[in-house]
Design a protein around this nucleic acid. Structure first.
Length: 156
DNA sequence: GCCAACGTTGGC
DNA sequence: GCCAACGTTGGC
């Protein structure tokens, strides 16, 4: 099957591309939205490439590239009473929330900002351009992925 | 800090 | 199963 491409949002004040570079890889924990969960559970395969998006940042935008390094497994934070992601309705035998691991690939020389993404005709149709696109994990077309990666490699 | 957009919850 | 109320996301 063809490799798929994704966009994953993270608030850099919580976890940034620099944190991922330092850690090498991470659990993508805390997703509590069913559509986003279903992408991780059903569709994200090892080797898929990910646009690492900084949300709630100034400016928001794609900061680099990551890669799925481990496929779907239960999100441990759902069972951890001390975690803010604790879900009392989730059972160990029947976990409700799943995650994937992602590993660092590259940090862009220069962040591809949301305004730039919105201005670029080649990126027409990207989900992240839509008003109110709150979904924290989004599928991305290969052409859009390649375009963002190309723009991200520029120096200025 | 505001608020529009959207997802979830819970009463009925 | 509907839908109002509420909570969250995230750009601005």
């Amino acid at each position: 099957m063809a490799r798929r491409y994704w966009l994953m949002k993270s608030e850099p004040s919580t976890y940034s591309i620099d944190d991922l570079e330092k850690d090498g890889s991470t659990y993508w924990d805390g997703v509590r939205n069913y559509r986003a969960r279903n992408f991780m559970r059903d569709d994200m395969k090892k080797g898929d490439l990910v646009l690492f998006y900084h949300s709630n940042a100034d400016p928001p935008g794609v900061a680099g590239i990551a890669r799925v390094s481990r496929e779907c497994h239960p999100d441990p934070t759902q069972f951890d009473k001390r975690s803010k992601y604790f879900d009392p309705k989730s059972e160990k035998a029947k976990p409700r929330w799943f995650l994937v691991d992602v590993e660092f690939v590259e940090k862009f020389a220069d962040l591809v900002s949301l305004p730039e993404i919105k201005d670029d005709d080649a990126l027409d149709g990207m989900m992240v351009r839509q008003r109110g696109a709150r979904l924290s994990i989004q599928p991305v077309d290969k052409e859009h992925f390649d375009r963002i990666r190309k723009v991200g490699k520029r120096k200025r």
